[in-house]
Design a binder for these strands. Sequence first.
DNA 1: AGTTTAAGTCAGCCTTGTTGACATTCCAAG
DNA 2: CTTGGAATGTCAACAAGGCTGACTTAAACT
Lengths: 166, 166
Amino acid sequence: MVDTATSSGDTLLFLTDEQLRQGAEAMFFAYRGFTADPDRILAGLSYGRAHHRALHFIHTAPGTTVNNLLNILGVTKQSLNRVLRTMVEDGLVESRVGRNDRRERHLFLTEAGQDLERQLSDAQRARMRAAFKQAGPEAVAGFRKVLESMMDPEMRRQYQRLREGR
Amino acid sequence: MVDTATSSGDTLLFLTDEQLRQGAEAMFFAYRGFTADPDRILAGLSYGRAHHRALHFIHTAPGTTVNNLLNILGVTKQSLNRVLRTMVEDGLVESRVGRNDRRERHLFLTEAGQDLERQLSDAQRARMRAAFKQAGPEAVAGFRKVLESMMDPEMRRQYQRLREGR
DNA sequence: AGTTTAAGTCAGCCTTGTTGACATTCCAAG
DNA sequence: CTTGGAATGTCAACAAGGCTGACTTAAACT
């Protein structure tokens, strides 16, 4: 009833509420698959998805500051700190005082931290690789295009900054 | 070093670890965008994302049983029950004893429940529609294809069952 | 010297995930 | 017909990980 496209539409057919609803459901189920493998690994250790996220982005941008990480992850200081503290205590993450600005702490993965990070992202990548392979290069391009369009402008900025940094 | 594709590869170039990592990050940021709008609405009320998920699938499959919903959502009984109970108390969801099997409860949205569901999914769909529009029909097809490939077989089954049911 | 900024901490709250015990109901085998 | 097991749903209690707000410490800036 609120359909954007008429049933006989052509180029607009994919924008019906029903199509959009299916897109949302696909997103929901796929995200569960996306996190399933790392979650399984983490369940054994006493870590959760929050630890994985932190590990991932410290790995991606070694030396990043706490504040920077807060912005990327979109959580509060307290929330991140809890997670970060346990990982520093467990010797997965190292926190070095900034050279220029000694108020800042720069974050790095230790050997052990890199090992865990690799273990987690290998699992995640394996699934991703299988999905990409099965869907084909053109589908992957479309996938990326839609995901980027779905981000908030803020996030898109950060996503692109991360991509450029490599 | 563990790259699947050589740097000079062609059809496989999109499967480098770096590309896969970017895919994972895109997924992370996009999912945040995907849930941002409903989350904003729910923050005002005393509901969370879990309520949204329940509303969505009860709307999709009215009369579904608690057990069925458990399978779809992939959470434990108690987790769902808490959410469900508050919504029944608040008059958003109706829970009717099964006619054939009186152990089962069949779930329906009340008027108020439908209103909230619509409000939430309208917000979500608006973003989705914009993203789909911007990315174009072919990108959307690819998006769906990749997401489907990313699901666990179990989930894919459920996803497809939901699609067929309409 | 006074203000601002980065980081960390504490207390306390909420949502949402978990497990385990329990009540009700159904069904099938004795 | 009864009884014992399986299925369904409810509840209590706990843990993880979000959140806010107040506060400290240290360093930098003006």
